[in-house]
Design a protein around this nucleic acid. Structure first.
Lengths: 350, 350
DNA sequence: CTGTTAGCGCATTCAG
DNA sequence: CTGAATGCGCTAACAG
C-alpha cells in the first residue's frame, strides 16, 4: 500500500553491452565479439572488454539475444500429468536427469513445465510457441492427448518418450523408446527356457504403445516356442497399477488354474500379481514364475525380489535431448527415432 | 551429415505482428493494441485483427515482448538439490503445486530448473540474471549455499522457502516458512499434557533454520512446563533421514533409559526412532510416546500411525509465489516474509 | 582487427 | 480512435 510514486527507480539500471563497450573504450560490436568467443578481437581489446564486463557485473540480456538469434537456448520438458505422478514415478526423475545432462553438455537449459488443466496446457503451448523454448520434450503422453499436435502445429520441434505411429512421426513427432517388444520377448523366452509351459501375461492398456508392444513381445516368444500365436485369453489387459495387476492375475488364475508363469507388463502390475498368486496359494517362483518390466526400485524389495526387464531410462532422457539438439542443428537424422535396448535382470521371482 | 546447403528454409516464416496487421489492413500499433486488451480500438478493427491473427496462426514472440517490456512473465523455481531428492520428497511436489497454482492464476509461467553441479548452478544464475526469469523461488537451500547471494547480486528478486536471518532478509532475501517453532512447541505440550515426564528430542541439523527452530520449540515447551530450559543432552542432532533418526534415538536411549517421549524433528527421523524404540523393547505409545513433524504420507502407514505436526506445504508454495508477485508489482510488503501456521495431527503414536 | 549499420518483433509514445 | 516513429539490447554483416 505504499502510495509513493517511486519517481526514481530504486535500483540502478543494469549494465548493457553498450555500457560495457563504453567502459572498455571500444565499440559495441567489438564488445560483443569479445564476449562471444573472442574471435577477430585483439588480445588487448579482449582483455579490456572482459575486465569491463566483470567490473560492471554485466549479464547479457537473453531476451535480446533470443530475439536476434531466433533461438533461446532452452528446451522444455513438458509433463502433461498430475504433479503427484511426476514426483512419485522414478521414471520421471531419471528421464529428467538424462535430458538435463545431455543438454547441459551442450550449454542448453532444461526447463521443466507442468500442465494439468486445459488452460495450463494452453498457457504452456503459448509459452513454447512464443519461442521461449527452442523445442519441447514430452513424456507421459496418453493416447488422445492433443498436446503434441498443438505443439507441432505451432511449429515447435517435439521429441517424445514412447513410440509413435509412423504417420505422426512423419508429421514431425520424433521419439525415443525402450525396446519394449524385444525386452518382453526376452523375458518370456527366459521363462520358457526355465521350463515353464503355460505363460500368461498381465498386459498394459491398449491405448498406449508400450502396452501393445510388451504384449507383442510376449506373443512373439510364444509363437516362436509353440509354433502358433498364443490364445488371446492368456492375456488380460489392465492399467499399470498394483491393483490392476492383482485383478488381472485373479482373472487369469480362474481361466488357467494350471498356469506356471506370469509375464507382467510393469513392475507395479507384477507386485499386484505377486499378491494375487500368494492369495491363491501359489508359491513364487516354485509354482509360478513371475517377471515384471521396468526395474523400479521397489522391484528389489518384494519377496521374492522381482525378475524384471530393465529400461535404460536415463539413456532415454539423454537420447531425447540428443535428438532434439540434432534436430535444432538442422541435421538430417534418419530414422528420426531411437529404440534403446533393454536388459533382463534375473532375480528370484522367475 | 546432409551437406545440402538448405538455401531456402524448409518451414514458412512464422507470422509476426506486422503480417497480422497487414492481413487485417491496419497498422502494427493498432494490431498490438487489439491483441492486448483491445483498448482504444474500434470494434471493427478489433475483430479484423483477431480474425487475421487466428487465420495466420499468429503467436506473439515472447522474446521481443520481454525485451520491450523488461519482463518475461515467467518465474523460476530453482532446486539446488539432487534430482533424486526432488522427485522423492513429497514436500517438493506440494510446494511446486502451490506455486504453480498461484502463478497460473496471475497468468505467469512457472519454470522448474535443477542445478546440482557448480557449473549447472552458474548456468542457472546466468539464465535468471539474463532476465529470462523475472524472479526466482528457492527451495531446499542449505546453510552455505552461495546461490541466493549470487542471485541477489545479479539483481534477481528471490523468495525462499525457509526462514532466513534478518540480515539476509534486509538484503532482499524474502521468505516463507511454516511456524516450526510454534508447531514443535505444540507437539511437546501435547506430550506433556499426556502425562509424559521425560521428553527428549531427535533434532535436525544446526545449519538449517528448520532444525534450529524445531529444537527451539521443544525447548520452549519444556521451559514453560519445567520452569527451566531442558538439559542439552536431552537433544541429539542428526540429518533428516530414517537412519539418522535411528542412531540418535539409540544414543538418547543410552543416556536416558527412562525416557517416555520422543519428539522427532521430522517424520523420517520419527520412523527411525520408531524402529530404534522397538529394537530396544519399548512399546509405542505405551512406554514411549512419539511425535514427528511434516506429516508425510508414510506417517500414516507406520505401526502405530505417527502423531505429527502438519505443515501447510502447498500454502507455502502458494505464498512464495504471492510474495514474488507482490514484489514484482513493486508493492511494499512488510514484513517481507510469511510464517504459516502448522497443525498437530494426533494419531496413535503419541 | 575494428566501428558502424541494420534489423530481430514488439509495445508505446506521439501526432493526427 | 489510428498510424508513424522510437527503442528495448543484442548479433551479424559490412566497410574500413
Amino acid at each position: 500500500m505504499s502510495a509513493a510514486p517511486r519517481a526514481v527507480p530504486p535500483v540502478p539500471p543494469r549494465p548493457t553491452l553498450e555500457s560495457v563497450a563504453a567502459e572498455a573504450g571500444v565499440s559495441r560490436g567489438t564488445a560483443s565479439r569479445a564476449l562471444n568467443g573472442g574471435t577477430n578481437v585483439s588480445p588487448k581489446a579482449l582483455q579490456a572488454v572482459l575486465d569491463a564486463a566483470d567490473r560492471l557485473g554485466y549479464r547479457p540480456n537473453l531476451a535480446a539475444r533470443s530475439l536476434v538469434l531466433g533461438r533461446s537456448g532452452s528446451i522444455g520438458l513438458l509433463v502433461s500429468e498430475s504433479d503427484d505422478r511426476l514426483f512419485n514415478d522414478p521414471f520421471f526423475a531419471k528421464v529428467v536427469r538424462g535430458a538435463h545432462r545431455e543438454l547441459a553438455d551442450h550449454g542448453m537449459q532444461l526447463v521443466l513445465s507442468l500442465s494439468q488443466t486445459p488452460e495450463e496446457r494452453a498457457q504452456t503451448v503459448r509459452f513454447a510457441a512464443g519461442r521461449h523454448l527452442d523445442g519441447v520434450l514430452l513424456i507421459s503422453v496418453r493416447g488422445g492427448d492433443p498436446l503434441p499436435e498443438a505443439l507441432l502445429e505451432a511449429g515447435i520441434p517435439v521429441v517424445m518418450a514412447g513410440r509413435e505411429s509412423r504417420a505422426r512421426t512423419d508429421r514431425g513427432l520424433w521419439w525415443v523408446d525402450a525396446d519394449n517388444r524385444g525386452g518382453a520377448r526376452a523375458a518370456v523366452e527366459h521363462l520358457i527356457e526355465g521350463g515353464r509351459r503355460c505363460v500368461v501375461t498381465v498386459a498394459g492398456p491398449a491405448d498406449m504403445a508400450v502396452g501393445r508392444d510388451r504384449a507383442a513381445g510376449w506373443r512373439d516368444a510364444l509363437r516362436a516356442a509353440e509354433g502358433e500365436p498364443p490364445s488371446a485369453d492368456r492375456l488380460e489387459r489392465g492399467e499399470f497399477t498394483i491393483e490392476s495387476g492383482w485383478e488381472c492375475t485373479h482373472r487369469l488364475l480362474r481361466r488357467y488354474p494350471d498356469l506356471d508363469a506370469v509375464f507382467a507388463a510393469s513392475d507395479l502390475m507384477a507386485m499386484g500379481a505377486l499378491q494375487a498368486l500368494r492369495e491363491a496359494g501359489r508359491r513364487v517362483p516354485d509354482d509360478v514364475a513371475l517377471v515384471g518390466f521396468e526395474d523400479i526400485p521397489a522391484a528389489e524389495q518384494t519377496d521374492p525380489p522381482l525378475t524384471t526387464v530393465r529400461q535404460p531410462v536415463e539413456a532415454i532422457g539423454r537420447q531425447m535431448a540428443a535428438l532434439m539438439i540434432a534436430r535444432l542443428a538442422g541435421e538430417g537424422i534418419s530414422p528420426p527415432w531411437s529404440v534403446l535396448p533393454t536388459e533382463l535382470v534375473v532375480r528370484q521371482s522367475g
